[in-house]
Design a binder for these strands. Structure first.
Lengths: 205, 205
DNA sequence: GGTTATCGAGACTGCTAGTCTTGTCAAGCG
DNA sequence: CGCTTGACAAGACTAGCAGTCTCGATAACC
């Protein structure tokens, strides 16, 4: 059971001691180890002990820089994940929305990010601190989508009384629901169908 | 910290010993205690120890009848929750859907069920066994909704190539998303807007 | 050159799921 | 009647994990 993992990253004793200065190499090793374990474990929780062992650091070193396990995990994910939020502006709501949704679905397909995100979500269910951190991570994207919809409404592509927040939640609702349960596809076809029906459903009369 | 709870249900020593026969009173006491704790704890996990103590039974008695904590919790919820799935049939898809969604939203508003369901979901994130049990619980409702949509499509109220599963997931996606995060309302107005835009979005041409 | 902050390692606390133990009690069987 | 047996309440125990604390080593800083 103790040797099932590829075992660390070789770095344990290699890394030079930096005395009273912060050891940036250790910082990186922790993030790398966290991301690696997050990506490998499909669903099963990632422990701090495992991260520390894989990074070749003491647990105290982890807790010196991050307040909780959740913080480490989220940091590891955002560190690598493309932080750039899609903000397509093709001039037409339907195509903007198609692009946005497709990009969102696509980003979640890359297996490394996917299993990391899945694990992170599961952990967030128990860790309020992490849940809060994830809220702000997700908030950025929600805001971008809302802006995109708002532009469309101003151009008259959506009815003036359209509930934009509801549309945002329909998009992310479907996304998370399928992403977490995995009972239906999240491909480009679905993205287009969803975008089209959302626009039609709230089109100006 | 040990006396914050109303403390048990008085029954501990009151309940008569049934010797070699199963004690149905204990069975009920466990379910009642589980539901009560589930309803009281908003978010914070419910422990088996707490259930056993509140029911005045030994932990072994709990595990004699249920395989895991999750099984007890789900059993407690389904035992009380209205198991009847809404299946309105008004003759028109738009009104059927409005009624179905409104009923779903409404059922989740009753505080007892709501916090129980929320806690249960959080636990399911960590307990695969419970997650599986919940799938079948939820599956019944998904099937009912899909049937409702299918009827509408057959009546020509939806385009023939409509992706019914995507609509189902939009409904439950929005529901769970808002239910768990609580950032937006789940009232009748939202139910109607959602139903209307879904029908319009996939209406036959 | 002494102080000080970081480091790796790992012991330790506290919490919880699930198992095992013990002594008790009544039902069923002879 | 009296012994066996299964369920029961209580709680000790194991195992796993988050987060804290301790310790000896090391190098920066004054």
């Amino acid at each position: 059971m103790s040797d099932t993992e590829p075992q660390a990253e070789q770095a344990p004793s290699t890394r030079p001691h930096t005395g009273r200065r912060r050891n940036e190499a250790a910082h990186r090793a922790i993030l790398d180890a966290a991301l690696k374990l997050l990506a490998e474990s499909d669903g099963t929780p990632v422990t701090i002990d495992a991260i520390a062992r894989a990074a070749g650091v003491g647990k105290q070193t982890v807790y010196r820089w991050w307040p909780s396990k959740g913080a480490v995990l989220l940091d590891a994910l955002t560190d690598r994940a493309d932080q750039d939020v899609p903000g397509p502006d093709t001039g037409a709501l339907r195509t903007d929305l198609r692009a946005f949704i497709a990009a969102t679905f696509d980003a979640a397909q890359h297996s490394t990010t996917a299993s990391a995100l899945r694990t992170l979500t599961r952990e967030a269910a128990r860790d309020p601190h992490l849940a809060e951190l994830m809220q702000s991570f997700v908030g950025t994207r929600r805001t971008a989508l809302r802006g995109l919809l708002s532009r469309g409404r101003e151009r008259g592509e959506l009815a003036g009384d359209t509930d934009l927040d509801l549309i945002v939640d329909q998009v992310y609702g479907v996304f998370w629901y399928r992403f977490l349960l995995g009972h239906g596809p999240l491909d480009e076809t679905v993205a287009e169908r969803l975008a089209d029906s959302l626009v039609r459903g709230s089109a100006a009369v």
